[in-house]
Every structure is written in structure tokens, then in C-alpha cells.
């Protein structure tokens, strides 16, 4: 196996699980998330395998964000054409058709303790309730550790937009989660 392929494999192995989790949160579907992550990996390999390895992380994030956004757009088109997209109820029982506010079943099933499960469910529910850009900005900044400029490049938006989406996300999460603790 050529050196570049080995490095690429190492990079993908390191990033794939987090990419899957981010995409699950965005789509609320394990199957869709797996497809999207696979597409992103294939695109990176086909187009950018020969680039310097330091470029792969921002490129991969950019590709993944594009794929997630494309998925959302397809969902919106399908909803408009076929009207079968399930209406999402918020806690008050009102129907919401906001594609970017899809309520979620938990997509993460840690084993074991009820409290851990509850904490995970709460966090995922709060994240999935965010509009897509706020959600992904928050995950890229806080979980992936990207700075403002890197996040802007990954999402294809301006630095100012990143700051706006991030601050709104933090505000919403603070209201949803309150004092969040990891046990």
C-alpha cells in the first residue's frame, strides 16, 4: 500500500466515528448518516488524496457539511413534492414542519446507566432542536475544536456568520440544558 494511501486511511479511521455522530445528530437517521459519511470519504479520496495531509481535515469537514446541507435540501424538495415528510411535534404538541428542527429519537445508545442515557438523550435532543447551521457550528467549534476561521471555511460561510450562529446555539442550549453535568 502506498504511503499516501496509508496516511489517508489513518486519517479517515481517526475521523469517521465523530463524523458519523455529527451527521446522526444532523439527520436523526443512522442509515442516512452512514451514507453521507461514506460519500464524504469517497469524495475526499477521489479529489484530494494527493493533497498535503494537513489539508485533509478542513477539506473533509467542508465536504461533510456540504453533504449534510444537500441532504436537507433534498428532504425539503421531497416534502414539497410529496408532502409525506412526517410532521414533528414539539413538547406542546404543535406540528412543526421545520426541516431544521427535526426532533430526534436518541441515536446514541451508551450502555448502561439510566442517568447516562438520560443525559445523552437530553443533550442530543437539545442539539437536534437547533437549526442546522447553529447545530453544526456549535459541534465544529466545541467538539471538533475548530476556530472561527476554520469553521467558516468548513461551512462555507463568513466568520461573522459563524459567530452569530454559535452565540445563538449557546443561548438555546443554555436554556434547554441548564446546568449540564457529565457523570
Amino acid at each position: 500500500m502506498q504511503k499516501n494511501t496509508q496516511e489517508l486511511e489513518h486519517f479517515l479511521a481517526g475521523v469517521e466515528r465523530r463524523a458519523l455522530q455529527m451527521t446522526r445528530i444532523a439527520t436523526s437517521s443512522n442509515e442516512e448518516a452512514l451514507d453521507i459519511v461514506q460519500e464524504a470519504m469517497m469524495t475526499l479520496v477521489k479529489r484530494y488524496a494527493q493533497r498535503d495531509g494537513r489539508e485533509w481535515p478542513p477539506l473533509f469537514h467542508r465536504i461533510l457539511q456540504n453533504r449534510i446541507r444537500d441532504w436537507y435540501r433534498r428532504q425539503a424538495v421531497q416534502r414539497k413534492l410529496f408532502g409525506w415528510f412526517p410532521l414533528v411535534n414539539n413538547d406542546d404538541g404543535e406540528a412543526q414542519e421545520e426541516m431544521e428542527s427535526v426532533a430526534a429519537a436518541s441515536t446514541c445508545e451508551p450502555a448502561h446507566q439510566l442517568s447516562n442515557q438520560r443525559m445523552t438523550d437530553e443533550l442530543e435532543k437539545a442539539l437536534q432542536a437547533l437549526p442546522l447551521r447553529q447545530q453544526q457550528t456549535f459541534l465544529l467549534r466545541v467538539w471538533e475544536g475548530l476556530n472561527v476561521a476554520e469553521t467558516a471555511k468548513a461551512m462555507g460561510i463568513s466568520s461573522g456568520s459563524v459567530k452569530t450562529h454559535f452565540s445563538r446555539a449557546v443561548h438555546s442550549l443554555r436554556e434547554s440544558l441548564g446546568d449540564y453535568r457529565y457523570e
Binding site: 466515528r17 465523530r18 458519523l20 455522530q21 446514541c108 445508545e109 451508551p110 450502555a111 447516562n116 443525559m119 445523552t120 443533550l123 442530543e124 459541534l139 466545541v142 467538539w143 442550549l173 443554555r174 440544558l177 446546568d179 449540564y180 453535568r181 457529565y182
Partner: peptide, 16 residues
């Protein structure tokens, strides 16, 4: 709270 959030998300990945 960000550390707790990060750890919870990491746990989801570790327990995949």
C-alpha cells in the same frame, strides 16, 4: 459546561 458536553459526545462515539 462545554467539557461535560464534549465528554458526553465522546462517550457516544466510544460506545458506538
Amino acid at each position: 459546561n462545554q467539557d461535560a458536553i464534549r465528554k458526553r459526545l465522546d462517550a457516544c462515539v466510544d460506545e458506538m
